Simulated assay, not measured.
Amino acid sequence: MTLIFLGGLTRSQLSSWVERIKEGTILSVLASLLARLHNVLRDEPSLELNGEYVALWPAVLSNANSYHLRAVAEMLWQLLSQALDIYPINIGYLKLMGDLNFVMNHYAIAMKYYLEAAIVASDFFGQPIPRTVIDDSIFRRMIKCCTQLQCHTQDPLSFSLLAAVLCQFLEEVDYVTAFKSLGERGGSTADAADAHLASCVWDITLLEFLVHLHAKRGEIQRKQQAIKVIGLLELNSNNNEEIQREAANIRKARFLRAISRQYVM
């Protein structure tokens, strides 16, 4: 079966044409067109691809049956791969590639691209990540990546820890998901990463939950570690916002550098 794409071109013809495009704006506009087409064909708001110029294109297709979702995704993947070969630190391309892999259930690869975008935006976490670059929608997708990887790996514990810590990055901490992720860990099988969890937590409610959880499981050493972190001066809830924000930023950078070494390096 020969699939007809834009302008009456076959997939092979369009692919050959795309390979000749090098200019950044043209690549971005074409990527946005394919992203919008993918969104319309899939028609699942929770799995939309986001990017520059996407909103410029119509949100309705009169001939949706003429397009094949998988073929559109593969063409977009080819385009983004080519774009990133030319512009490897373009944040828009990195985020869109992350989104594409996320909706295709390639969760580890999605994490890689989201983290690469964050690395570029923050100079390897030397400064806070701008919310205009990595917002709650991307952090929620990163959390979902971790929870999904947790269900499909022989070593789920580290992913549950990652999900729990990432819940703090949201504007409003997702305690339900964080508590669930931490609660699913087995006390006797917790891996070495667990020993460093408290050093990446700045939310007092989450730390108090850790104290309760460790006490319930008889994990005295880990309980004492969490209590020690709660007592740190920089995490005192009476501190002004600037001190609290700096304490959070230090722990965010520490955590993101650690998981970047796992997914990106």
Rank of each mutant, 00 (worst) to 15 (best):
T10N: 07
I119V: 06
Y93Q: 06
L84V: 04
D203Y: 05
S81G: 15
A190L: 13
K223P: 00
I227G: 01
D135G: 12
G186P: 01
A31M: 05
N236I: 02
E52Q: 15
Y263I: 02
M111G: 05
S158A: 02
K112N: 08
L182P: 03
G24M: 09
A163F: 00
L34G: 01
D99P: 08
E74F: 10
A59N: 14
I227R: 11
Q244D: 09
S137Q: 13
T177H: 11
V165A: 07
N238I: 15
K216D: 13
G7P: 08
F5P: 00
A248R: 15
W17D: 09
V201L: 15
L206F: 11
G8Y: 05
V173A: 07
L84Y: 03
L161G: 05
S15D: 12
S46K: 14
T189G: 09
I21Q: 00
V176G: 10
T189R: 14
L33M: 11
V120A: 11
R70P: 02
I220Y: 04
I243N: 04
Y113G: 00
L210F: 05
N90S: 10
F169W: 01
L213V: 09
I119P: 00
E48Q: 11
A118E: 03
A215I: 05
K22S: 10
L232S: 14
S16Q: 12
I259C: 08
D191I: 14
L47E: 08
A198R: 15
S12N: 07
C151M: 08
Q150E: 08
E246V: 13
T153D: 10
Y114S: 03
R185W: 03
G92V: 02
A55M: 11
G8T: 03
E74H: 13
A64T: 10
I119G: 00
F179M: 10
A193V: 12
D43V: 02
A195C: 10
A31H: 03
M1V: 12
Q154C: 03
A192D: 14
T177C: 11
E246I: 14
W202P: 01
V264T: 11
I250T: 03
E74L: 15
R20C: 06
M142Y: 08
S66K: 13
V120E: 07
F159C: 00
G98T: 07
E74S: 09
Y87I: 08
C200D: 15
C146I: 06
H106M: 05
L47Q: 11
A258H: 08
N236Q: 10
V72N: 00
Q150G: 02
V103A: 03
Q168L: 06
L100V: 09
N105F: 14
E234F: 00
N240R: 14
L207E: 03
H212A: 13
K22Y: 09
T189H: 11
L213N: 13
L232Q: 15
A215R: 13
L76C: 12
R257D: 08
Q78L: 15
D155N: 02
V229S: 04
I4P: 02
S160Q: 04
